[in-house]
C-alpha cells in the first residue's frame, strides 16, 4: 500500500518468514532445556527397555512377539510426548511468562507461531524415533518396516500424528488455570489415553467402550498406523476392523489437523484472561 499521504513503511515480513525464524528459535530453546531434552528422548527408550525386559517372552494376538507389538505403541507414545505434551505445556508456560503477550504486541500472525511449534515438533520427533528404532532393532531384534512401502507408511503416520498432536497441544493449552495445573491435566490425560489406545495392552483386549473413546483421539490411530508399518501384513487380521484401515487413519489424523487449526486460530489467546 502506497499513498502520498502515508509515508511508506515496508510491509511487515511475511508469515512464512516469521514462521521460519520461529522454528529456529524453538529448536534452539528446546536444545538448551536439558530436562526437556532428556525427558523427551529418554522416556520412550526407558519404557522400551523396561517393558521388553519384563514382558519380552509374551506374545500378542497373531503370535507377534511382545517387543515388536510394543515398539509400535511406544513410538506412537513418543510422538504424542514430543507433540501434544511438549507443545501444550510449553504454550501454557510461555503465556504465563508473558512471552506470548510480547508476540501479540509485535503483530505476530498466530499461524507463524503455530508453524514454529510444528516445525520444532517434527524435528524433535524425528530425532526421538532415530534413537528408538535402533534400540529396538539391535537390543530386542525387532524387525524394521519390511520394505519401502512400509517405511512410507511409517513416515506419513508419524508426520500426521505429530501434527495432530501439535494441534491438540495448542488447543489444550487454552485450558483455564496456571501453567502448572495445565501441565498436570495434560500429563494425566496423556497417561489415560495411552492405556485406552492400546499402547501397553493389545487394543483388541480392551473393553468396547474404551476402544470407542480411544477412536475419537489421534493416539489410537497413530498406534494402529505404527503397527501396520512394523507388524507383518497378516497381523492386520487381528485388528478390530480386521485390517489396517489406512484410509480411515489418514482421514482421522488429517481431520484432527484441519479442524484443530480452524478451532485454534479462533480460540487461541495470547494472554491469560483478566480477572
Amino acid at each position: 500500500m502506497t499513498s502520498t499521504l502515508t509515508p511508506a513503511r515496508p510491509a511487515p515480513p511475511s508469515t512464512a518468514r516469521i514462521a521460519l525464524a520461529r522454528v529456529g528459535l524453538e529448536l534452539r530453546l528446546f536444545a538448551r532445556e536439558r530436562q526437556q531434552v532428556v525427558f523427551s528422548f529418554a522416556y520412550p527408550l526407558v519404557m522400551m527397555v523396561v517393558f521388553a525386559s519384563v514382558l519380552g517372552g509374551d506374545e500378542r494376538p497373531g503370535g507377534i512377539p511382545f517387543a515388536q507389538y510394543f515398539l509400535a505403541g511406544i513410538a506412537a507414545t513418543g510422538i504424542m510426548l514430543t507433540s501434544f505434551q511438549a507443545v501444550g505445556t510449553a504454550i501454557a508456560a510461555e503465556r504465563e511468562a508473558g512471552l506470548l503477550g510480547r508476540l501479540q504486541l509485535l503483530g505476530t500472525p498466530p499461524a507463524a507461531y503455530f508453524a514454529g511449534k510444528a516445525g520444532q515438533v517434527l524435528v524433535t520427533t524425528a530425532v526421538q524415533l532415530a534413537l528408538l528404532l535402533p534400540l529396538a532393532r539391535y537390543a530386542y531384534d525387532v524387525p524394521m518396516p519390511a520394505d519401502l512401502g512400509h517405511w512410507l507408511t511409517f513416515g506419513w503416520v508419524a508426520a500426521l500424528g505429530a501434527l495432530a498432536g501439535t494441534v491438540l497441544g495448542i488447543a489444550v493449552s487454552a485450558l483455564p488455570g496456571s501453567a502448572s495445573s495445565v501441565t498436570t491435566t495434560i500429563s494425566g490425560f496423556a497417561i489415560v489415553l495411552q492405556f485406552f489406545s492400546g499402547v501397553f495392552f493389545g487394543f483388541t483386549e480392551l473393553p468396547g467402550w474404551m476402544q470407542q473413546v480411544a477412536a475419537l483421539f489421534p493416539l489410537k490411530w497413530l498406534t494402529q498406523g505404527m503397527r501396520s508399518a512394523f507388524l507383518p501384513e497378516q497381523a492386520g487380521a487381528f485388528e478390530v476392523a480386521g485390517g489396517w484401515e489406512h484410509g480411515r487413519t489418514a482421514l482421522v489424523l488429517v481431520a484432527w489437523v484441519i479442524i484443530g487449526v480452524m478451532v485454534c486460530t479462533r480460540t487461541f489467546r495470547w494472554r491469560r484472561a483478566a480477572g
Partner: peptide, 14 residues
C-alpha cells in the same frame, strides 16, 4: 502494529 513500539514486562523470547 508495525508503527508502534511497546516496552512491556515480558522480557524477550526465552
Amino acid at each position: 502494529r508495525a508503527r508502534l513500539g511497546v516496552v512491556s514486562q515480558g522480557e524477550g523470547a526465552g
